[in-house]
Design a protein around this nucleic acid. Structure first.
Lengths: 198, 198, 198, 198
DNA sequence: AGATAAGCGAGACGGTACGTCTAGTCTTCTC
DNA sequence: GAGAAGACTAGACGTACCGTCTCGCTTATCT
């Protein structure tokens, strides 16, 4: 039994919702995460603060929703499959770093990741609605590679995905090095060939 | 001609410095990054706010210094070398996840990483004073493995390090899965063997 | 041509009207004037806010109506006349202070007076619908006294009423002293006898 | 033992204090009591809100202080004494109504009285710092009148003061009639002569 | 040794933003 | 068409911190 009356979603203003999400993206890109304020978003969206507090429990969840409109929730249905696993993975990862290098995506993604680092609830949501679906697509491509003998059979596909995509995300988050196409090519080649001899 | 008089470091109070760093660690562990305030740290350390602002340019750099006292700057001089690369890497990574799972380390590290994500200057400092030295140790161990034929010759060692350590850091930051010894074992085995057949 | 359609009073819900007035009185007595809100009244009355805004132009006018239901508009038809002016005035004033000391009346009256102080329109309404009728009754009693030689002929009856009732109201409003029967007796005696010698 | 550290008054900024009081007076005169906000005062005074909240417990006490700067705390030392009580009281009361009719005084005084009506603590302060001293001056003048036989001996001087000044304040607060010199003359004459015959 | 000056604890200052509350308007649905 | 319900824009509330500043006090260095 909820002790606080939930707002009636059927009456929600779609106009306001969209204005808020757009304003959040614009503002985070403009002023950066540190200076992003609910008050600023409300003002930029031409909306009362309460309208934000009514529908989002935290700045993180708002950023998450905003990010989803940017990413297009569940837009991709499959990774490219030209028959050459290495080439396909390089293509995907190159597109990823291009996105990460795009200022329009960079700031919102950093903001979202910051929230995820500190908010396990939000992180769970992120895993379920963004990470899992994307991970599934990646695993599907890897399974297809297994079928044509381009990937060993007895590998943990989650670990495989982590090894292919983790290093790039880390380098971006931690500014430990430049995000280039060369780097991702190296990562794909190394991951596929393995570090050990033979 | 500097327009702002630099503080005279020779007169700096070591007592205050230590109290501030300790209070920062205690507080971030206690209340979390989001509720961590300079004012709170100053109060907990029994110190005036100005003493913090005088010596640290940002909350991030303070957290960095605090973290260094926790990690023990440049304490380790070499990674273990029993002759078995896989076993050694598993040992190191298991120790790493144990640390990441330790509440005393978890919050300060998350706080530091948050700052790094948004502050390239701090990130550069982090890379130079923490990431680079640790990375060098790891590369030394990998070079030793190359000498005894446990690691292929023509591999980019930076990429190798990223593939071994990146997935763990990632999983921790994004809460994408549990950080277990099993997981790191999988990662090491897979990285060494490679994803491709043969 | 009115630009705002006037509500059709014939369709007005008497139930809602009464619930609102009752809720206003209850709430002002319970939480005090400062924390009295239209929203709170609407909620307590089980009524939509619009129903209040439709029928009352201001919080003051609502309080005024509520107060009228408490006072019983134009209920008294004459002041007591035992033939002894002083005794009759003391009786009336004692009843007045008893009312002012009654918590049920105290808060609503203070609220109403606050609104009157700042709203000349409401004040005019108050004068016409509450002050004037009461004042007329008082003047009637004074005129009767004049007829039997208990009050001088050439006195401004409005001034006389002000001198008898004003001090009590003031003392109550300003908390300048306790409102006792003794005090009103003093006022009546002094007013009738005059301050000057003889 | 106070549970909340009291601010250190010795460090108080006199500039800020004066700016706040002046801004409060200006604003209440300009926009009226109903639209007077702490935020507005702070802004007009070029001051942070906290500086107001630090030094005044309520809007009422701020208005009180502001009013004191307007009235000049304890400025008058004695009422005029020409030997003619009636003439002197008329002079004083005429000055009073002139003040009440002055827009510069009207709004702040109404604001202050509103707060007093609802805040007994503030009312006590008002009585002590403004009402009592003024009342004492009035009573001194009345005592002087008693000495020269212009006022009866056995009268409660507080009641006498209430009868002379109460009606004017009342008429002003409640808008029950115009505040004219004629009116105060009537009041003084009637009070001194008394309502009863002879 | 006394003067000088810096760091220090303390905390007031002008501000920004927080998250909550209410005003008054508007919209939707029911009776 | 009035009414219950409640979302909407707007903005004040009182609180928490920001980063700067000023105040005495304590040290350390320099005449």
């Amino acid at each position: 039994m909820p002790n606080k009356a939930a707002p009636d979603a059927s009456r929600r203003s779609e106009t306001a919702r969209r204005a808020i999400l757009a304003a959040a993206l614009d503002l985070v890109a403009e002023v950066g995460y540190a200076k992003l304020s609910i008050e600023g978003i409300a003002h930029a969206a031409g909306v009362g603060k309460q309208t934000i507090y009514r529908w989002w429990p935290s700045k993180g969840s708002l950023l998450f929703d905003a990010f989803l409109t940017l990413a297009g929730e569940g837009e991709a249905t499959a990774l490219p499959d030209t028959g050459d696993l290495a080439a396909d993975m390089k293509m995907v990862l190159r597109a990823t770093v291009d996105e990460l290098n795009d200022p329009r995506f960079d700031q919102p993604m950093r903001a979202l990741h910051t929230e995820i680092v500190h908010d396990p609830v939000l992180a769970a949501d992120y895993v379920k609605r963004l990470d899992e679906p994307m991970r599934e697509l990646k695993k599907q491509r890897l399974r297809a590679a297994q079928r044509v003998g381009q990937l060993i059979e007895d590998v943990d596909l989650d670990v495989a995905v982590d090894m292919l995509f983790g290093p790039v995300l880390n380098r971006w988050l931690q500014h430990t090095g430049p995000l280039t196409h060369d780097y991702v090519d190296h990562v794909v080649d190394t991951a596929l060939r393995g570090l050990g001899p033979r």
